[in-house]
């Protein structure tokens, strides 16, 4: 399968006298195959939007290699721009123009036929409200307009940053169907989102970024499989014994992934019976010991170390930077 998007060792550093040096992208790698819906995940401030902006020529990188549709960027960006549709972060449009005016001006700038405007308005469900000023739109309607603007070019590669932001449940489902339909028509879609359930539902593959570096990548099922082994939920007869249980297990080399109010989540457990034995030796009696099939959210929280901890307030840049290991199939693997 050919790669539509390739990023290798991408670096972007911000220097500030007050805040010092911050590596927004620290040797980031990414590869998206043709015809896929690819999820691009990461905590706030991890470098997702910086990556997308850099790809689209809005930010100048400090190093690394990027290519879209086999063309090296940023040199070939003017050549490939006509085949890349994108929305980056929240949709922003001139508030006093109507949706039809907004798309009409973009279509004219891109030398596209006028009828394409009506096609995409129909596609995103804005046909009947197209003549109204954008400032009267809800966030969800602006989001639809943003997707319409990205689809206007009928691109080969569609890059959408939080496309479901502000959409109602029906809109989210429509967006999911739209993404699937576009992928089936041969379009490659890169989807950045925090709605991990959606990503798990509609994406073929994912890349997870944390602190500017890739921490996982590959087909969704492989990423899940790679991180679901040995995840066990433990409940005790007495909830008050959970802290002592966590300490006992940690001392014995078993990783306590999260500590909830009424249970512990353990990871890397080969033999659940070992857990039961260790706890029993300390007079702690297990009421539930369940192997857990992980979802993308728990993998994400584990990989990025952004799971909430009771009593602590995680700051934006507090997430994990993991050595670049992942499932097979990624760039540089």
């Amino acid at each position: 399968m050919s790669a539509v998007l390739e990023i290798e060792g991408l670096r972007k550093t911000y220097r500030s006298r007050k805040r010092g040096v911050r590596h927004a992208l620290d040797g980031f790698d990414m590869r998206v195959e043709a015809g896929q819906v690819h999820g691009f995940l990461g905590p706030n401030g991890s470098g997702k939007t910086t990556t997308l902006r850099t790809l689209l020529g809005l930010i100048r990188p400090n190093g690394g290699r990027m290519a879209i549709l086999g063309q090296e960027l940023p040199h070939a960006l003017p050549t490939v721009a006509g085949r890349v549709g994108a929305i980056v972060e929240s949709p922003q449009f001139f508030p006093h123009f109507s949706a039809r005016d907004t798309l009409g001006l973009l279509a004219q700038a891109g030398e596209l036929p006028r009828q394409r405007v009506d096609e995409v308005l129909e596609l995103v469900g804005l046909r009947d409200r197209a003549g109204e000023r954008v400032k009267t739109y809800s966030l969800g309607m602006k989001q639809r307009l943003a997707v319409a603007s990205a689809l206007l070019k009928n691109p080969k590669l569609l890059i959408l940053d939080e496309p479901a932001n502000g959409l109602d449940p029906g809109g989210i489902r429509e967006m999911r169907g739209l993404m699937r339909g576009l992928a089936e028509s041969g379009m490659t879609v890169v989807l950045s989102s925090h709605i991990l359930g959606e990503i798990q539902l509609i994406c073929d593959s994912v890349t997870i970024i944390s602190l500017g570096r890739r921490v996982a990548f590959g087909p969704v099922e492989e990423v899940l499989a790679a991180h679901s082994q040995g995840t066990v939920r433990v409940r005790l007869e007495a909830v008050s014994d959970l802290p002592q249980a966590a300490e006992t297990l940690t001392r014995s080399g078993i990783r306590v992934a999260t500590s909830e109010a009424d249970h512990l989540m353990l990871s890397g457990v080969d033999k659940p019976a070992e857990v039961s034995r260790l706890l029993a030796e300390q007079g702690l009696y297990v009421s539930e010991l369940t192997p857990v099939a992980v979802d993308l959210e728990s993998v994400f929280l584990e990989l990025t170390a952004t799971a909430p901890v009771p009593g602590q307030h995680r700051q934006v840049d507090q997430s994990a930077k993991v050595d670049q290991t992942g499932t097979a199939g990624g760039w540089g693997a």
């Binding site: 689209l56 020529g57 809005l58 003017p78 922003q92 700038a109 603007s149 070019k153």
Partner: peptide, 10 residues
């Protein structure tokens, strides 16, 4: 608007 335009005309 400028950013949108630059996505079309880099």
């Amino acid at each position: 608007g400028m950013m949108n335009l630059l996505l079309w005309r880099p």
